[in-house]
């Protein structure tokens, strides 16, 4: 059975990627299971989707624990623990990262057991606020790496999933998917199917007997204030607003009041952005009277300064 996971940000088309690949594999004659992993995630937040494909009916369910292939649509997610990008990937697995940086850099940085390859981002994105839709690109790359999906099946998958959105959308996505499909040609078939865990050789679960605890402990109650500030929603951000204090007039009541997240506080009469929690909505940029706020593409590790 093939087990593939797509990681990206909410809005980048990971569900679409899983569906295109699922449909392509299905039309090739595989039994398929594909699903997005929904939660409380929002646009920009880490999200993933997965595909299983096998020549026999699939009984395995739920999140893929041991992937054969992991695709990362947005390399800024890799250092984010909550994204779980590297979960369960071992020497057998293949990790494909969409990145402007070369594979060697990632191999050094990650020191992972898995093989690491890169789908290069050739053109720098001028406007990342749009959270580029890269579902078709990821599906195209995955299809070629599996080596079992003909180009026609990939095209059929794109038509099946995006046909309702019109010919132009299909055409554009098809072009992107085929470009990725071609780019991965040297690695066609690099992904191999993993077998099943044997009932004779497995790590037994370390089950625990839950102790009784009083209701003060065991009721779902938080006995503290403001603990949500421990959540780094700054990780959702792909564009970073920056204040040019030479231009800033100090009218903090504009940006600070209108920031939906309350992530702009006031120090010495000047607004200061809390990058741990700024989600990059850019309301501040839109409302700043002297246009003192500009947007900048996030670095690979958007919250590096917070750690």
């Amino acid at each position: 059975m093939y087990r593939i996971r797509f990681h990206g940000r909410g809005g980048q088309g990971m569900k679409t990627a899983s569906r295109i690949l699922g449909s392509a594999l299905f039309s090739t004659g595989f039994e398929v299971q594909d699903a997005p992993r929904y939660g409380a995630e929002r646009r920009g937040a880490p999200i993933f989707a997965y595909v299983r494909a096998s020549r026999a009916p699939i009984d395995e369910r739920g999140v893929i624990q041991r992937p054969d292939l992991v695709l990362v649509a947005d390399d800024s997610l890799i250092p984010v623990p909550a994204a779980g990008v590297l979960a369960g990937i071992d020497a057998h697995g293949l990790l494909l990262i969409r990145s402007a940086e070369p594979a060697e850099r990632w191999r050094e940085r990650l020191n992972a057991a898995a093989r690491v390859i890169v789908l290069p981002i050739t053109e720098p994105l001028l406007d990342r606020a749009a959270l580029p839709q890269v579902g078709a690109t990821c599906a195209g790359a995955a299809a070629r790496l599996l080596g079992v999906v003909p180009a026609e099946a990939l095209a059929a998958g794109i038509e099946a999933e995006l046909g309702g959105l019109g010919a132009r959308v299909v055409e554009r996505n098809l072009a992107e998917a085929m470009a990725a499909y071609q780019a991965m040609a040297p690695l066609a078939g690099a992904v191999s199917e993993d077998g099943e865990i044997a009932a004779t050789d497995y790590h037994p679960p370390d089950w625990v007997d839950l102790p009784f605890e009083t209701a003060r402990v065991s009721a779902p109650a938080i006995h503290a204030a403001l603990t949500s500030e421990l959540v780094d929603t700054g990780l959702w951000r792909s564009l970073r607003p920056e204040i040019d204090y030479d231009l800033c007039k100090g009218c903090w009541w504009v940006c600070s009041s209108l920031c939906p997240d309350g992530a702009i506080h006031v120090e010495n009469g000047r607004p200061v952005i809390d990058y741990d929690h700024c989600k990059g909505c850019l309301v501040c940029l839109a409302v700043c009277p002297p246009h003192a706020i500009s947007a900048h593409t996030e670095a690979v590790t958007p919250c590096a300064e917070s750690s």
Binding site: P205, D206, W207, V208, L210, T214, V217, I222, H223, T227
Partner: peptide, 24 residues
């Protein structure tokens, strides 16, 4: 109950944030 040591450890981290530690 199918519940592992690792899950309980993760829960304990959440409980620390929820400030229930002292009454454990």
């Amino acid at each position: 109950l199918l519940y592992t040591e690792a899950e309980l450890r993760e829960l304990r981290k959440l409980q620390t944030i929820a400030a229930v530690e002292r009454d454990r």
